[in-house]
């Protein structure tokens, strides 16, 4: 493998990351507010679907109400609150409490952190490899050792 391939790949991945970030920010995926709101509100007369996905009577009524309120100039937060006042926080498929979001994220971050600290903990100095074995041989040995295990 030529030496320039690695840096090129890193540069390409970084460039792609930039493109993706720009695509994520400016992308045409801005859904209509009504659609986003409908996907966040639970359909009262079915069990696990949002009103965006359901076609029951109540879901139809709530979608119509969302459109009407948005047309009347209310903001998304006001519309959300309108439904919470009437149905309770039960109507929100995305729980409003920050704890619901923070607890699992903290748990995962803490586990990754503990794992990272453990892996980076001081360890016995690495055994220096004999100089006379060249890279190619070492790679071949590693490959053959690996093809022996699963």
């Amino acid at each position: 493998m030529r030496a320039w391939v690695g840096p090129l790949a890193v540069a390409a991945v970084l460039a792609l990351g930039g493109i993706l970030a720009v695509a994520a920010i400016t992308g045409p995926r801005a859904e209509p507010v009504a659609q986003t709101l409908a996907a966040e509100l639970r359909c009262p007369d079915c069990q696990a679907l949002s009103v965006a996905e359901s076609r029951t009577a109540a879901a139809n009524a709530i979608r119509a109400e969302i459109s009407a309120q948005l047309a009347a100039g209310r903001t998304a937060d006001e519309v959300r609150q309108h439904f919470v006042d009437r149905y309770g926080s039960w109507i929100l498929l995305r729980p409003a409490s920050p704890l619901a979001w923070l607890l699992p994220l903290l748990a995962i971050a803490a586990s990754v952190g503990v794992l990272g600290l453990w892996l980076l903990r001081r360890r016995p100095a690495p055994v220096t490899e004999p100089a006379q074995v060249d890279d190619e041989t070492r790679r071949r040995l590693a490959r053959e050792a690996e093809s022996l295990d699963g």
Partner: peptide, 27 residues
């Protein structure tokens, strides 16, 4: 790492750009 991942990473970048040209959008 370079030997095993550089080629696939370049391929992935190329195909992702092809995806953009084919009309795929969004992160």
């Amino acid at each position: 790492i370079r030997e095993r991942f550089a080629g696939p990473a370049l391929l992935a970048v190329a195909l992702t750009l092809a995806g953009v040209l084919l009309g795929m959008r969004g992160i």
